[in-house]
Design a binder for these strands. Structure first.
Lengths: 253, 253
DNA sequence: CGTGTTGTGAATGAAGTTGATTGAAAATGT
DNA sequence: ACATTTTCAATCAACTTCATTCACAACACG
């Protein structure tokens, strides 16, 4: 009696999220499915971008400090152009709250050289900006979520309660008409506090994120002030976003 | 059964990133792969510019995710032996609060591989331990002090108020009969909160610190539970320390 | 009832990876 | 300067992993 399809794929995702990596063989024994089936699952999950297929197994593809393949290649061109546009929108002397994630990390890279005050809960971003002489860096502490290097949990939340900023720049796992999503409830909880701490909410997302949902719902579209997306965004999505009262900025290459 | 390709290459990168250099032989034993395989991996990683191939091994190249070039500036032999002794005193499963500083950074390095819960306000230490799979890391946030990469200020202090640990391990700027000193009032203020948060106070210090005072007074000697010092400490200082009711551990080379 | 559709497992040959072996090249010691 | 040792690149056979194909079973839908 075979396991239910979705259930099995869910379990694969869980294992990968937890370990960062699984071998195909491990999944075969763990799930009691045949090699062919697991292979097909991995192929599918890779197709929708949930994991990254590698020879012999599969790797975690989400935000990460030390990704497997990701380390071998630089961020996508879309993310880089988005980041550049965002960085140009930021005026010297401002204070911004920077969420964790690969897109926001690119944004941080673009901020180098500017005189700013930056608040972040992301260890990679902190590393990047700590070396910048003109940037005053405030770190949000908390339980450091392994692999992603983002501080979460009660400590992070209470720290965010003490912080007030004019603007937060967030990444996201997925966007639908229902709003923003992310893959991790702990993360979402923390991001909710960020929404409260900031007056304006800017969301950076490459167009592949649209139409995708994820495990945890973060907020309605109406909470978002501005979105910065690459030019690959379809016209229908542009209408939906603008219809929700969001200022949409397209990052042209 | 061979290890998976990407995983192995990632591990090579991690080792090189941490040590700055690895010999081919070390990788062979460490990874349990054949010389040919490791050779091929190095060739590949060199090809994509992640490492620099050298005769007999490979060297680090390019930008790091762990800034603060502490990594290469090797600590003094005294600090290293102190750190090793301290690390041996820590039992698996414990929770410790780790102060910032070069000596405590060495301690953190010695903790690699152990299963621990570590609380710290030091960015370099967080970077070091974030990669360790067995270490649960809690980051104390706050204003990130540029030079040293330590989180200080009101945010850090209120975070420390919410934390309780059996043991804090601190560095220090100087030690006299009057107690411990450090060079920075903001830092001292934060360290005072650490003293409150912990039951036991361990101080790591190389013998050169004794007899030196510094700008800001942190606390009396009586607050300290244990000191770990290198063998260069004079007999008179040993008596003073023991006379203050402190358990003194000498780190022999 | 057929007749698609979908999920599954097994079989096949192709492609990629691995470890041992070889002799050349470079470093080291005498 | 020579012999010895270490490191290296190239080659090859054994082995893994992979994509493709086929056959079978469950199930929906006309």
């Amino acid at each position: 009696m075979p396991m239910i399809l979705d259930q099995r794929r869910d379990e694969i995702l869980q294992v990968i999220e937890q370990q960062g990596f699984v071998s195909l063989q491990e999944l075969v024994t763990r799930l009691g499915a045949s090699e062919s089936t697991v292979r097909r699952d991995l192929e599918y999950l890779d197709g929708i971008g949930q994991i990254r297929r590698t020879r012999g197994g599969a790797a975690y593809t989400g935000e990460s400090i030390t990704p497997f393949e990701e380390r071998f290649r630089s961020a996508s061109r879309e993310k880089q152009t988005i980041a550049k546009v965002v960085a140009d929108l930021i005026q010297p002397g401002e204070t911004i709250l920077l969420d964790g994630g690969t897109t926001t990390l690119e944004v941080a890279r673009g901020l180098a050289g500017k005189a700013l005050q930056v608040v972040t809960n992301s260890l990679p971003i902190a590393n990047l900006l700590a070396q910048q002489p003109n940037i005053e860096l405030v770190l949000i502490g908390g339980y450091l979520y392994p692999r992603t290097g983002v501080a979460l949990g009660p400590l992070a939340e209470s720290a965010l309660r003490e912080v007030h900023v004019p603007r937060v720049i967030m990444g996201t796992g997925g966007i639908t008409e229902k709003g923003l999503f992310n893959s991790n409830t702990l993360l979402v909880q923390c991001e909710r506090m960020m929404l409260v701490a900031a007056k304006e909410v800017w969301v950076v997302a490459d167009s592949s994120k649209f139409g995708k949902s994820a495990l945890a719902h973060l907020c309605e579209l109406s909470k978002v002030t501005r979105m910065i997306v690459d030019a690959g965004l379809s016209d229908s999505w542009r209408e939906i976003i603008r219809g929700a009262g969001i200022e949409l900025t397209i990052a042209e290459t």
